[in-house]
Structures are given as structure tokens and as C-alpha cells.
Design a protein around this nucleic acid. Structure first.
Length: 461
RNA sequence: UCCGACUUAGCUCAGCGGUAGAGCAAUCGGCUGUUAACCGAUUGGUCGUUGGUUCGAUCCCAACAGUCGGAGCCA
């Protein structure tokens, strides 16, 4: 029996072939006098393959009814094309129609807006742009695993349901099996002792605290999984469900952390450029004309490295008109981050040593007593791509920081154990996977780099 | 959550105080090794919802809803 070949294999074929079998979806059909051109795409690559269906086919009438979106199997000869736009085409000996797409198939042979395609997110992978985006998403995921695995990092699956209200990284989604209409109550309050886990449970906002524990056993680890934030944020850069990569390295300081982050961003960018060249080309052509320049800048240059106070000084000295004046002690605004990466350095920048007041409790207090060993990687257009830090490894300092920030020490009992039993310096960071996707494709809305995005008031599909 | 813009045919949009138009799509026909093919015809809309102003509202006003953009939160 004839083995099916993907469109990519056929177009990459070294020679013409007498007999091939291909399967896919019709992108467009053009009728000529005695035959039809049918363009088939199967998702294996951006390009379609052109099929010549002559009117001597016994079901030629069926071929002439093929609409955009219909599914077919074609047997025939792979021959060099007489037309100019493609190397090969397939002259059909038989065309089997799996299914006709109804005439109200919403994808037309024209450009659709991203807003419209979002309303048909279940069908948009059949378009050129979204096909390319999600091929890139797959390759980018692989590149991340490849980067860490090749460097001896272990992949840790941290829990998605969590009982700790730990990190304070944002509002959390509650997980419960209680009857919401009529929950059990004690003294007027919901009695979570009767809930599934016997206490309150939520979807994770970060795997970091769990990841740190595994770094204390396995050495270097990384997590790569879904993360959830119940924040009511309506921006092009936030989703309620997104994927995060969180490496954690034992015996590492903030400089090791920055090196790792920079190496990783460069590696995965290069990997996608090399392995999704055709798809990236589409984005450079139709989505962001400056994309190639941006990607080359990332791959070919050292990232700028400055401290938070230096960043504030740079911004104060510039005559750039900020909506919010940069001031030491306040967290950087989106416009500040973008100024540094886009306007001042024109390449990725790593800012470190932030005032302790504006950063999380687990970050290591620097010798000055005022700043913490935190670092953010800022990139053009996106702003913050990565946030990381060296962790506070001293038990007493960490306990004091927990108290200072008004949190309960007993909630962090298990976490504090790591500082009691063989504590070591360690560091890690979090990379928002979708933000990396946006950086690498030039797509400006996070909703367009997630197959089925979840944002406030939006959970169709 | 705050600020702003938008909401007219399946899609992208134009329009105007006197109840609507184009391109594309779809359907039918024609022509052609075409390639977002081309040419012709046809079909297709209670102009987001509710209220108000007016002789009369798709158009002006208000509220609400939805979408988009910016901000905050962050990844």
C-alpha cells in the first residue's frame, strides 16, 4: 500500500515521483478549461501543494464542488510544475473526498483580522499565520527542553493544585468540590475542612517554591507548565492561564542566574530561527517588518547589564518624556522598561539589585541591606520577559523578611526547612512562555499565541 | 479595575436627521497552466441592546453589553 507523504516531504523531495499519496485540506480551488488546480495544506509546513485534477477523473464533478476547508486524499504523480510559483505539483490519478466543508465555512481566501479569528479560535490553526504561530510554539517548547536537558537540568513537575497561598504572586483561582449553592458553614464562614483536601485549595501561580526544594536534591532543575492568575487584567500581555518556565540552580548566585537567562534566550531564539525559518519569514513579512533585526540583535549581542539605580539615573538624565517620572524606590513602569530596551540600549537589558521593598520575600538581601539580588530581563516591545533572583538562603534573614512583609511564618514551614537542613546559595528565574512567543513571532497580543486563550470573561472553546 | 475608541451584509469597511452602499465571500454562468486568478449575474442587512430628544433616528443624547487599545497588576 502506498505510504502517505506529508506536504513538506513532497515539496522537499529530491526528485519527481511516479506515485504519491497525500492527504490534507483544500485551501483554494481554481478551475481551468479541462482541469482544476486544487491547493492542499496539511499543516506540515506553511506552503500548500498544488494538485492538478484533470476532467478525465471519474469523479471530476466532485472535484469541481470542492470548497475551501474540504478534506481530501490525493493519489498521483509528483512532477515538476509548469507554473512559476512552485517546484513540484501533483497530477492526480484519484481524488477521494473525505468531507466537504459547508458553504458557511468561515475562513475565506483572504486576510482576516486577528479579532475575528479569535472568535473562531477552533478554526484558526487552518490559516497561514496561526499555523505558523503554533508550529513555532511547538518548536519553541522543544528548544526549551533541549536547552535545559543538554545542560543537565532535570524537568520537575510541580503541582498545579496548591494548598499554599504562598507566593503572593497574584490572585488565585479557587479549587473546590463544595456545593457553591449551599456550602457547609461554621460560625457563618465556609467550612473548608469539609472540602476535598480538607483545606482551601487553589490553582498554582508559580512552581518556584516547590522547584527550589527539588533543586536542593537534584541540583539544577526546571519546571515548564501551566500557571494561573485570577487577576482581572485586560492587556495584550496577560492571560489567566499561561505557561511558565522556572529553572532553579543550586550553588548559583545572581550572576550565574543572569548568564543562564541570557544563554537560554539566545539558544531558543536561534533554535527557532534555524528550525522554523519559513514560518519566521512569514512573521517578518506580514506581522512585524523589524522582526529579523530584533531576533538577530538578540542572538548576536551581549545583553546590557545594569543595576536598578543605574537604570533610574539613565532615565533621569534622558530628555525622554515619561508619563510617570522615574524615581528611586518605585517599581519600573512598562514605559520605563520599554524605554531602556527599545530606546536607550536598543537590545535586551538585564536590570538587577532592586530595592527590597518592591520585590518578593524570598529574594536575597544584598550586603547594602537595602537592595535584593533580583534581576529582570527587559526586551524591546514586550518589557519584562524574565524575572529572577538569587534566593535568600539564610534562615534568620528569611524569617525576618516574611514577618516584615506581614506574612505568617507557619505558612512557610516546609519551605523554611530548606534553610534549616543544608541550605545553599541558589538562584532561578521565571520566563513567561507566551511572552517569549510574542518576542519571537512579533505577534502583539498574547491571545494570538495561545491555542485557546483564557482571559477575563472569555472561556469559549 | 480605570481611561479612551469602536459596534452597519458571512468578512473588511463606507455612509447619512427622511428607515442603507462598496469590495471580498457564497450561489449560478463564462474564460483561462492558474496561483489571494479573472469577467458577468444573483443572493444577502429588524445599522449591538434598551430608553430618550424629534413630525421622523442607523445617524443626536443616556444607560447597558460586547470588542479593541492604553494603564495598573505581573510572566
Amino acid at each position: 500500500m502506498l505510504k502517505r507523504q506529508k506536504v513538506k516531504e513532497l515539496l522537499d523531495s529530491k526528485t519527481a515521483q511516479e506515485k504519491v499519496l497525500l492527504k490534507g485540506w483544500v485551501r483554494t480551488r481554481r478551475d481551468a478549461k479541462d482541469f482544476s488546480f486544487v491547493e492542499i495544506n496539511d499543516g506540515s509546513c506553511l506552503k500548500n501543494i498544488q494538485v492538478i485534477a484533470n476532467n478525465n477523473l471519474n469523479n471530476y464533478e466532485d472535484v469541481k464542488k470542492l470548497t475551501t476547508g474540504s478534506s481530501v486524499a490525493v493519489e498521483g504523480a509528483l512532477v515538476e510544475s509548469k507554473g512559476g510559483s512552485q517546484k513540484y505539483e501533483v497530477v492526480a490519478e484519484s481524488v477521494f473526498v473525505y468531507d466537504y466543508a459547508d458553504e458557511d465555512f468561515p475562513l475565506q481566501k483572504k486576510k482576516h483580522t486577528d479579532e475575528y479569528l479569535r472568535t473562531i479560535a477552533h478554526l484558526r490553526p487552518r490559516t497561514n499565520k496561526y499555523g505558523a504561530a503554533f508550529r513555532v510554539r511547538s518548536t519553541l517548547s522543544y528548544a526549551i527542553h533541549k536547552f535545559f536537558q543538554e545542560r543537565g537540568f532535570r524537568y520537575v513537575h510541580t503541582p498545579i493544585i496548591t494548598g499554599s497561598d504562598a507566593e503572593g504572586a497574584g490572585e488565585m483561582f479557587r479549587v473546590t468540590t463544595l456545593d457553591m449553592e449551599n456550602p457547609p458553614k461554621v460560625a457563618g464562614k465556609v467550612d473548608y475542612k469539609q472540602d476535598f483536601f480538607g483545606k482551601e485549595a487553589h490553582l498554582t501561580v508559580s512552581g518556584q517554591l516547590n522547584g527550589e526544594m527539588y533543586a536542593m536534591g537534584l541540583g539544577d532543575i526546571y519546571t515548564f507548565g501551566p500557571t494561573f492568575r485570577a487577576e482581572n487584567s485586560n492587556t495584550t500581555r496577560h492571560a489567566a492561564e499561561f505557561w511558565m518556565i522556572e529553572p532553579e540552580m543550586a550553588f548559583a548566585d545572581i550572576f550565574d542566574d543572569m548568564d543562564c537567562a541570557e544563554d537560554m534566550v539566545k539558544f531558543i531564539t536561534k533554535y527557532v530561527m534555524d528550525n522554523c525559518a519559513e514560518d519566521i519569514e512569514l512573521f517578518a513579512k506580514f506581522v512585524d517588518p523589524t522582526l529579523m533585526e530584533t531576533l538577530n540583535t538578540i542572538v548576536n549581542n551581549d545583553f546590557a547589564r545594569i543595576t536598578y539605580s543605574e537604570a533610574i539615573e539613565i532615565m533621569k538624565k534622558s530628555d525622554f518624556k515619561f508619563e510617570y517620572a522615574p524615581e528611586y524606590g518605585i517599581d519600573m513602569q512598562t514605559e520605563h522598561e520599554r524605554f531602556l530596551a527599545e530606546v536607550h540600549f536598543k537590545k535586551p537589558v538585564i536590570v538587577r539589585d532592586y530595592p527590597k521593598e518592591i520585590k518578593a520575600f524570598y529574594m536575597k538581601l544584598n550586603a547594602d541591606g537595602k537592595t535584593v539580588a533580583a534581576m529582570d530581563v527587559l526586551v524591546p516591545r514586550i518589557g519584562e520577559l524574565i524575572g529572577g533572583s538569587q534566593r535568600e538562603e539564610h534562615y534568620d534573614v528569611l524569617v525576618q523578611k516574611i514577618k516584615d512583609m506581614g506574612m505568617k511564618v507557619e505558612d512557610y514551614d516546609w519551605y523554611l526547612d530548606s534553610r534549616r537542613y543544608g541550605s545553599v546559595p541558589h538562584a532561578g528565574f521565571g520566563l513567561g512562555f507566551e511572552r517569549m512567543m510574542m518576542l519571537i513571532t512579533g505577534i502583539t497580543n498574547i491571545r494570538d499565541v495561545i491555542p485557546f486563550p483564557r482571559t477575563p470573561n472569555s472561556i469559549s472553546f
